[in-house]
Design a protein around this nucleic acid. Structure first.
Length: 731
DNA sequence: GGTATATGTCATGAA
DNA sequence: GCTTCATGACATATA
């Protein structure tokens, strides 16, 4: 609702439920066949719907319906689209909810790709397909994928990159699916994509999936998309959707129904410029996607390997300069030695074994960018400091900040902005650099460390260009994990995503578990990281050795850190051998018990310390009480002396008779006996033979006298006179 | 070599 | 029934 007047303020009310209500009403109308103006025929079965709805959410219908004029038009879908695949999509169009199962997910996926359904994130298919099919697999699907990808990369680097980069795509169209089920998925997906894109693979051959399919299976596309959009602009799902929509809008129908599963390039290219090199269609469309240009790929195509390497070196230098001039106070270049993890001439941002470093109260990690190493201050990373485990997400965020700082600095120096570069064609530098950054960062974070899954036997050679798709997706995954920390419940696949988190995190920790474990131990023990005993080190070394022996694809430390649910989920989703399973449980149990023992001992020490403090406190209190008692005793003795003097004076002046002395003896007390003051009293008493009861009475009287005098001490000095008078009177 | 300390591990019980 | 945690007891390494 909007109100406006010529001279009044404008107020806007935005309903958050209006759109959903409208959609629901439309769905109700569809069920009642009210106001429906189009009939969709699928495999001979008719579905009534609204043109506007279909056209709004589907590229295919948008084009078909726009050419229809008459009311009650009938649209017959291609035979590739099945009822089982279309019906859920139609419901999705009206409800935003896609209901699918293991049986129809492939058909839905295929139909969605053919029809080009908008807002139906490929994430669900990318992620769910392998989940549905993972039961037939005995190992992580990323393993074969990466190896083959890396082999291809290696072959390219060996000079196999021929002119005409479009061949790259043809090369990429290779069967890599491990299992028949995956191959089926791959073929179905790619068939739909290639069939629409233009049959890149030739005529009708059961086209296998592009390389990287398995990898995409295991990573959340939502996260990968964030990579392209930037961490700030595409955090929300809306941003993601918008991003995807924009890209598809500039594309004709033939290319819009992209299949990230079957054509992972299309998914990746939306996100990261380096991946654009593998999609000629993308290149043909030029720079319609903003600053992320594909010009570099064109150059590769034209100039070949030499050009590529040259550009790589140039970018390497550029990135060094960028970071070197970065004014981030928390980033400091500490050395310029070449990182063994990067080949000669390579560049990019990687984590250099992510060791934890301590400086005073600070905490830092070491990172590498190309040949440069940097120490990043993560002192303010409370979680890391509290847990002692450097969160991979934090690493990624820091890495992004570092790269961002470098880019911004470079922009300032060039006098250009992101958009300007994008528009002016300088996006080439950004694209290439970012691609390499992603590649190397991902290599370190997601690929390298998971030796069992991603080990590249040819990794010794540099892999700078043209192969960043997998790595970029890994980086994207890191970004997504970062977003998950803030919106952990927003992703419908969060539960499964944790599994992917496992993959990545486990890999990361495998790479640097020594440092992280040391961090944990040192933190728990309250000591420096270098002060760990050999016992602990031996235990962990043994654990790592055992992990290698059983070929455990995860870090022991990471498994221990898993929550119960995550661990259970991991056991369900990951097939372990009996040996691995036994080892995992054993290590988890012992590690947890180890930490529990540390906590227990710490509590015990704290308890001992508290008890010691209590003892000291009680001792101090006792000393104070004793001092007070002594002081009071002195006061009492002083008063006794006064009383004695008074009594002596009274006795002398009164010249008491023995009977009178008996009465006076009543006022004596054991503490202040009159006998001590009047030695003659005892003599008199003994002389006159006072009975014991008389002596007791005399003591009682003395006590009463003491009390009376104490009370009258402060009143006046006449108390003594009064007492004297009383005594005289009583006498 | 004996002792104190730190740490890991196992067993056990409680939640 | 399983898991986690706390804790006592024991073993081992180190200073």
């Amino acid at each position: 609702m909007a109100m406006s007047s010529p001279r009044s303020s404008v107020f806007t009310f935005e309903s958050t439920v209006h759109s959903s209500h409208v959609l629901r009403r439309l769905d109700e109308q569809r069920h009642r066949d009210t106001l429906c103006d189009v009939t969709v025929v699928v495999e001979g079965e008719s579905f009534r719907a609204h043109r506007s709805v279909l056209a709004s959410c589907c590229e295919y219908f948008a084009q078909r319906i726009s050419s229809l004029t008459q009311h009650g038009a009938v649209i017959t879908l291609p035979h590739e689209v099945t009822v089982a695949g279309f019906e859920p999509l139609l419901k999705f169009a009206y409800t935003s909810k896609l209901l699918f199962g293991k049986d129809n997910v492939l058909e839905i996926r295929n139909s969605a790709s053919i029809l080009g359904f908008r807002d139906l994130d490929d994430a669900c298919f990318d992620f769910l397909l392998p989940k549905f099919l993972s039961s037939s697999k005995g190992s992580f699907p990323r393993k074969t994928c990466c190896k083959k990808k890396c082999k291809r990369r290696s072959s390219q680097e060996d000079g196999s990159i021929t002119s005409g980069e479009p061949l790259l795509d043809k090369k990429e169209v290779k069967p890599v699916a491990d299992s028949p089920s995956q191959q089926e998925v791959a073929w179905l997906c790619l068939k739909s994509a290639n069939g629409k894109v233009g049959g890149q693979n030739g005529a009708g051959t059961p086209t296998p999936v592009a390389e990287g399919t398995n990898e995409h299976f295991m990573q959340c596309p939502k996260y990968r998309r964030r990579l392209a959009c930037g961490k700030e602009t595409c955090v929300t799902e809306k941003g993601l959707s918008n991003r995807a929509t924009v890209i598809r809008d500039d594309c004709d129908l033939s290319c819009s129904p992209r299949s990230s599963t079957g054509n992972s390039k299309s998914e990746s290219e939306l996100e990261f410029p380096v991946n654009s090199s593998s999609n000629p269609d993308r290149q043909a469309r030029g720079g319609a996607d903003g600053p992320w240009k594909t010009e570099i790929h064109d150059k590769k195509t034209e100039a070949g390997v030499d050009t590529v390497k040259k550009e790589t070196n140039e970018r390497d230098i550029e990135m060094k300069a960028d970071i070197g001039f970065s004014d981030r106070s928390s980033v400091k270049a500490v050395s310029s030695e070449s990182s063994p993890a990067l080949g000669e001439g390579s560049s990019g941002l990687i984590l250099h074994h992510c060791p934890l470093k301590t400086f005073g109260d600070g905490l830092a990690i070491t990172m590498s960018l190309g040949h440069e190493k940097f120490v990043m201050d993560i002192t303010e990373d409370k979680k890391t400091r509290d847990t002692g485990v450097l969160a991979p997400v934090s690493i990624c965020q820091k890495a992004e900040e570092l790269v961002e700082a470098g880019w911004k600095r470079a922009d300032e120096e060039r006098g250009s902005s992101w958009l300007e570069r994008g528009k002016g064609g300088q996006g080439l530098e950004r694209s290439s650099v970012e691609g390499e950054v992603a590649e190397h960062l991902a290599k370190r974070l997601g690929s390298d460390a998971s030796q069992a899954s991603f080990h590249d036997p040819d990794a010794g050679s540099s892999s700078d260009t043209g192969s960043g798709r997998a790595q970029s997706t890994s980086l994207g995954w890191l970004n997504f994990r970062a977003s998950l920390s803030a919106t952990s419940t927003s992703c419908p696949f969060l539960q499964d995503l944790d599994q992917n988190k496992c993959l990545w995190k486990g890999a990361e920790l495998s790479e640097c578990e020594g440092a992280s474990q040391s961090g944990v131990s040192s933190l728990n023990s309250g000591e420096d990281g270098d002060s760990g005993t050999e016992t602990e080190g031996d235990s962990e070394s043994y654990a790592r050795e055992r992990a290698r022996q059983v070929q455990l694809p995860f870090s022991v430390d990471w498994i221990v850190d898993l929550s119960r649910n995550d661990f259970q989920q991991l056991l369900k989703q990951q097939v372990f051998t009996s040996e691995q399973l036994e080892f995992v449980h054993d290590m988890r149990r012992r590690s947890k018990n180890r930490l529990a023992a540390q906590r227990c001992r710490k509590r015990k020490l704290d308890c001992i310390y508290n008890l010691q403090c209590e003892i000291n406190k009680l001792k101090t209190e006792r000393e104070i009480l004793m001092t007070e008692k002594s002081h009071l005793g002195q006061l009492k003795l002083k008063e006794c002396h006064k009383v004695s003097a008074l009594c002596q004076r009274v006795c002398n002046e009164a010249n008491l008779l023995p009977e009178q002395l008996q009465v006076f003896a009543k006022y004596t007390s054991p503490d202040c006996p009159l006998s001590s003051l009047f030695p003659h009293i005892d003599a008199l008493l003994s002389q006159h033979g006072l009975p014991p009861q008389v002596h007791a009475s005399l003591s009682a009287c003395s006590a009463a006298l003491d009390q009376h005098m104490a009370s009258e001490e402060a009143s006046s000095g006449s108390s003594r006179d009064t007492l004297t008078r009383d005594s005289q009177h009583s006498l």
